[in-house]
């Protein structure tokens, strides 16, 4: 019976591709075509509206001659590193502590998770007050009697970025905690029991056995947190509005003000391209290794 494949089989063959096609098409347009468009604008003299001429790398030269852009790049580096390290570390600690048969776990979990639900447009204001030396923590502690206590990072151009880190860590740790907690719950208890019977101390068990088993959770946390770090925008605007003296400028805020406030659309596009290239340099190898692994795995 060498008849041609029945129609239904051919549909079955093509259906998965057909189903995926719209998503692919949409992403090709909304991500990759738009990136090309931005690339084009970055090579043009566009100011208030897009212009489709060609001025070479002028806008990139202009971008890199702007001190504020240097601050932005430096800040992104400092912020991402600290944010990723602290959020991951604190999230893991919280998850481990919460995993010790805590009686009020549900409540505590909700407390750690709620910041993720709030928009920074206003929690920024609350943080602004808390960090303000004349209104917040410093004032309260001074009034309690420790008059020499100083906590005025937000007013210091060199330290203000760390305030942004504090608020960002506050917002996202709960999320990291949830993922780690889930990872811990997925670990077989007998492994831990066995180690305990052998007399290993609890911290040691966690360090040498449990944490290494959380590798997939670490990867998820890092992907999600990188996403949050790159997109940090509302946070900066609400907390410091890039101040004091542009000290907390970030690439996203720089791009926004160049394009929409300073009529330098070409410079804004150039900064977007720099950001994209940086992200690609970090993410593409990661994606490649992840996908390669999963292909090997199956």
């Amino acid at each position: 019976m060498s008849r041609p494949t029945p129609l239904s089989n051919r549909i079955e063959h093509w259906l998965p591709r057909l189903v995926l096609a719209p998503s692919l098409l949409v992403v090709l347009v909304a991500v990759y075509l738009f990136i090309c468009w931005t690339g084009w604008i970055s090579l043009s003299s566009s100011m208030i509206v897009p212009k489709y001429d060609f001025v070479g790398l002028n806008q990139y030269v202009r971008l890199w001659s702007t001190p504020r852009w240097h601050t932005a790049v430096f800040n992104l580096f400092v912020f991402s590193t600290l944010f990723l390290a602290l959020t991951t570390g604190l999230g893991l600690l919280m998850a481990i502590l919460l995993d010790q048969k805590i009686r009020v776990e549900g409540t505590l979990r909700a407390i750690f998770l709620y910041p993720m639900a709030l928009s920074f447009i206003v929690t920024g204001t609350a943080w602004k007050w808390i960090l303000n030396p004349a209104l917040g923590v410093q004032k309260v502690i001074n009034e309690l009697g420790w008059t020499s206590f100083v906590f005025d990072w937000i007013a210091q151009p060199t330290f203000a970025i760390y305030c942004v880190v504090i608020a960002a860590v506050w917002q996202s740790t709960g999320f990291a905690m949830a993922i780690f907690l889930a990872g811990l719950r997925g670990i077989d208890n007998s492994v831990i029991k066995a180690a305990q019977i052998e007399g290993a101390s609890l911290p040691r068990i966690y360090r040498t056995i449990v944490v290494p088993m959380l590798r997939p959770a670490f990867l998820s946390v890092i992907v999600l947190l990188s996403y949050i770090a790159i997109k940090s925008f509302d946070l900066i605007l609400a907390l410091t509005n890039t101040g004091p003296g542009s000290a907390t400028e970030m690439p996203s805020t720089f791009m926004y003000s160049a394009t929409f406030r300073r009529d330098q659309m070409g410079v804004g596009a150039a900064s977007a391209m720099m950001m994209l290239m940086t992200v690609a340099a970090i993410i593409v190898p990661y994606l490649y290794s992840e996908l390669k692994e999963s292909r090997d795995g199956h």
């Binding site: 001190p67 101040g243 004091p244 003296g245 542009s246 406030r261 300073r262 330098q264």
Partner: peptide
Amino acid sequence: VEPRFSGVFQDVVGKFFVTDMSAEDAVKS
């Protein structure tokens, strides 16, 4: 002046005031 220039004034003046930048450096930047 147009926003791309007034923005520069704002950047420099803002930074000058909150740091110990000298007046000469401010003018230069």
